[in-house]
Every structure is written in C-alpha cells, then in structure tokens.
Design a protein around this nucleic acid. Structure first.
Length: 264
DNA sequence: ATGTCGTGTTTGACACGA
C-alpha cells in the first residue's frame, strides 16, 4: 500500500501534474495540502477519471486539504475536534483499516508573530487529539506539510531563519513521536535525497538549498509493515512546479487484508 | 539581496502569505 503526501500550492495550477503523478506512481492514497480553492472548484471528475475518490476540505485563497484514495474511504472527519478553526488544515479518513490524516501545519511566519503562537496552539491540540485517536485507531498514518524540520540534517546551511527549526517547534515534533508515531524516513534514508521543500527564490532548487518539512509518520503498530520510504523530487524539477515535492511511504498489505482478499 | 510564486483586489499594480 503506497501512501503519499504532496503540498501542491494551488490544486488549480498543479492539477495536470497531480494527474500525471497519479498515473506514474499509482499510489493507493495521496494526501494533498494547500489546495487554495473552495470546495465547489474541487476537480472531482478529473480525479474520479484517474481512478480515485476524494475527500476534501477547501477554502478560498489559503490552506485546504484533501485525501485521494483508490479504495473506499470511511468516516471522513474535518478539523481537530474541539479546536475551533476557520482554517482548513486537517482531514482524515479510514482506508483499508488504516486511519489516514492529511494535515497542513501552520507556518508560523516569525517567532514573534501571533501566527507562531497559533502554530504552537494548533500543534498542542493536534497532539492531544492524536493521543486519543491512537487508542481508537492504533493503525494510523499522519501525513502532510508539518512546517517543521526536525533535525539539523534536515536544513541546508543557507537557511538562516529560526522558523521551522526553533526548539519549541522541534519539541512539538518530538511530542508526536512520543505518542508512538515513527518517522520511517530514517530507516530507509537516501542521504543524497533529504529535502522536500525548496524556496522559489534564489535558485534554491538548483543549489539544493532545501528543507525536510513534509513528513509521513506511522504508528508503531504499522512498524513491521513498512517496506520503503521515499522522497520523489522529480515533480519539483518540472515547469511551474509546487515548491514542495511528494513523499511516499510504502506498506506491506496486512496479513488480515491479504487473508480477506484471498478469500474473495 | 525579501531575489518567486499563487491568489485576490483598491486589477495590468500592489498586498499578502509562504
């Protein structure tokens, strides 16, 4: 089971690239962030023709998240329960017995900004909610644009801004790991292919001056099923690219589902 | 050296967020 995430920075602009990528990579699940469109504009038909159903939560101009899936989705839920927020940053659904969360974490803008406080509040609410979710759904995957680079190695030397790397942000990332979520990137690391985001400015992609801020975390229950972890930087090299590139987690089909499918 | 995008409006020039 291939589960991917991609911050597309406008689904309207990136739709052709998304459709190409679905055809090439054939993921079972693709989590999207920064749709930057209202629900009425979501390209349901094009996605369906590509063989995927979609669950989405959009808004005008900013944010917006979706889950595309080849298999049936159940129990779609939008937002963090109990955390009132007009910004559409989180959607989740159950697919093949796995709870999939697609999230666009707040950027934070600057350490002295109100948006940074909102980021830390959002992270606190997310973590408290996930702690409960993992009791109900021990098989869980959290995928998206975290806007946090967890390790020094995730940051190119040219990055001087304290944002995305500050101790409180990194502590919040660690708090997610402490819930029993695992960053399988480290087990399947390709050191020459570390970053998931490159600024549009200053020829950052050409210089490989990037950051690793897009992540897919899997619950410990899924640990033994993880077959591979990849960052696909090819879409970042296309004409008119998103500033982010897709991340892919490959899981072995569970013994239960293998059994069920064999009996069908 | 805030240098590029995408969106939206006070629309073919700027404000904002990232």
């Amino acid at each position: 089971m291939k589960i991917a995430t991609w911050n597309v920075n406008s689904l309207k602009v990136r739709l052709p690239q998304v459709l190409d990528w679905l055809a090439t990579q054939s993921p079972d699940v693709l989590c999207l962030q920064e749709l930057k469109m209202e629900d009425a504009a979501f390209p349901v038909e094009a996605i369906q023709q590509a063989g995927y159903q979609a669950a989405f939560a959009g808004q005008k101009t900013y944010n917006g998240v979706a889950i595309l899936s080849r298999q049936t989705m159940h129990d779609v839920q939008i937002g963090i329960p109990g955390f009132e927020d007009p910004q559409k940053r989180l959607i989740c659904a159950s697919i093949q017995g796995i709870r999939i969360v697609s999230a666009y974490f707040p950027n934070g803008q600057a350490l002295d900004s109100d948006k940074y406080l909102y980021k830390l509040d959002w992270l606190k609410a997310l973590t408290a909610w996930l702690k409960q979710m993992l009791q109900i759904h021990p098989r869980l995957v959290l995928a998206g644009d975290f806007n946090i680079a967890p390790c020094p190695e995730d940051v190119h030397s040219s990055w001087k801004d304290p944002l995305l790397t500050s101790p409180p942000e990194r502590a919040a990332f660690q708090a997610l790991l402490d819930l029993g979520l695992e960053d399988s990137f480290h087990r399947f690391a390709k050191p020459e292919n570390r970053y998931t985001w490159w600024d549009y400015r200053m020829g950052a992609f050409r210089r490989n001056a990037g950051l690793r801020i897009d992540h897919i975390l899997n619950s410990q229950t899924l640990h033994d099923q993880v077959l591979d972890f990849n960052i696909d930087r090819t879409p970042r090299a296309l004409e008119r690219p998103s500033d982010h590139t897709p991340v892919i987690l490959t899981l072995e089909k569970s013994a239960l589902l293998r059994l069920r499918n064999n009996n069908e």
